[in-house]
Design a protein around this nucleic acid. Structure first.
Length: 332
DNA sequence: AAACTAGACAACCGCTGCTTT
DNA sequence: GAAAGCAGCGGTTGTCTAGTT
């Protein structure tokens, strides 16, 4: 497709538009429509390329453009759609009347992306960040209080090398944190969750995405009993009882931001394509496979795969070093 | 008051896909 | 079927402004 860019032509003005240029463009389009963008500048008496005119019109001068701050509803829609569509800004903009792809893209990059990062959510995958610095942000204080000696005592009858022991201890403490947050006091959850609540006024996103993402991150040690609670098998189960975590089935919660399966993702994209976004509801009880159980059983699979792939020694070395703020004590 | 920095957003650039010739 | 033309998309850059030192 060999074609030289239209803006290669010499002498055409670039940069910010003046009011006079805006008026010329608006006047011409109101009278004649834009027709061929390539031909428009000449017809309108503008020393610009057609591309520049099109962008100026679609992103700024169009009369149906909505100005002003994004509402919370719009924010949620963008995040939701972004989790389904990725950086398909024009598709996202198609579901937000009055907003342009450029505006949404800018808003994402300057606001929403940061918000998600602060919440410990990867803005690309819409899953808990895997850099474990954030995932484990709440751990250090608890780790300090952890009774490592008791673990050693408990392990006296088991042959474990130091590395395995450290891994087990870390998992053990992570589960303690998770079970504490869930069993004792829902309001005393991690700061990450509180941040999330502040953003959306609801906690469901994080309950689905982050907290249980963490639980399911430990897939090798968890067992889902397919009811409304998760049976957490402690990695050191020979030394302690399984921990039960209650899962609130909040029907008033926001829809899941990430489809439970690739099939569901396709379904969502189809609906968006058909401008039927409002009908996309993960909690559709008429279809059991799309209910929350889909999340708890299927959705976590990629996340588990991730952790499975990362259970190398280097991965653990990094986690343990960061958690204990000490050098890896088991260097080869 | 000047210099510097960071955030926000408008605009540009290069590429892609569709349509036309 | 190939080449050319075009509009649109997404990533990136440039510019402006407000806040900080």
């Amino acid at each position: 497709m060999g074609r030289s860019p239209c803006c290669d032509e010499n002498g055409l003005k670039k940069g910010p538009w003046t009011q006079e240029e805006d008026e010329k463009l608006i006047d011409h389009i109101q009278k004649h429509g834009h027709g061929s963008w390539r031909a428009l500048p000449k017809q309108a008496g503008l020393n610009r390329c057609g591309k520049s005119c099109r962008l100026r019109w679609t992103n700024y001068l169009r009369p149906d453009i909505k100005r002003g701050n994004f509402t919370q509803e719009e924010e949620e829609t963008i995040i939701n759609l972004h989790s389904l569509l990725g950086n398909k800004w024009s598709s996202i903009a198609g579901n937000l009347p009055g907003r342009t792809d450029n505006e949404i893209k800018n808003y994402w990059n300057t606001h929403l992306r940061k918000k998600l990062l602060q919440m410990g959510i990867d803005p690309v995958t819409h899953r808990p960040r895997t850099d474990h610095l954030n995932v484990l942000a709440a751990l250090p204080q608890l780790m300090a209080a952890a009774n490592f000696n008791s673990l050693l005592n408990l392990n006296q009858n088991v042959q474990l090398d130091a590395t395995t022991l450290a891994k087990a201890q870390l998992l053990h403490n992570m589960i303690q944190v998770l079970s504490t947050n869930n069993n004792n006091n829902p309001s005393s959850c991690s700061s990450t969750m509180q941040t999330n609540n502040n953003l959306f006024g609801q906690s469901s996103y994080l309950e689905n995405q982050n907290l249980f993402g963490q639980s399911q991150n430990l897939s090798q040690i968890l067992e889902n009993d397919h009811d409304e609670h998760l049976m957490v098998r402690d990695p050191l189960e020979s030394f302690s009882s399984p921990i039960q975590i209650d899962v609130q089935d909040d029907h008033n919660s926001l829809p899941l931001l990430v489809p439970a399966s690739s099939q569901e993702s396709k379904q969502a994209q189809m609906m968006i394509k058909n401008k039927d976004i409002t009908t996309y509801n993960h909690d559709d009880t008429s279809n059991p496979s799309s209910s929350n159980s889909a999340f708890t059983q299927d959705h976590h699979q990629p996340w588990c795969e991730t952790i499975d792939d990362e259970t190398s020694d280097s991965y653990w070395k990094e986690i343990i070093e960061q958690t204990y703020s000490e050098p890896w004590p088991f260097a080869e």
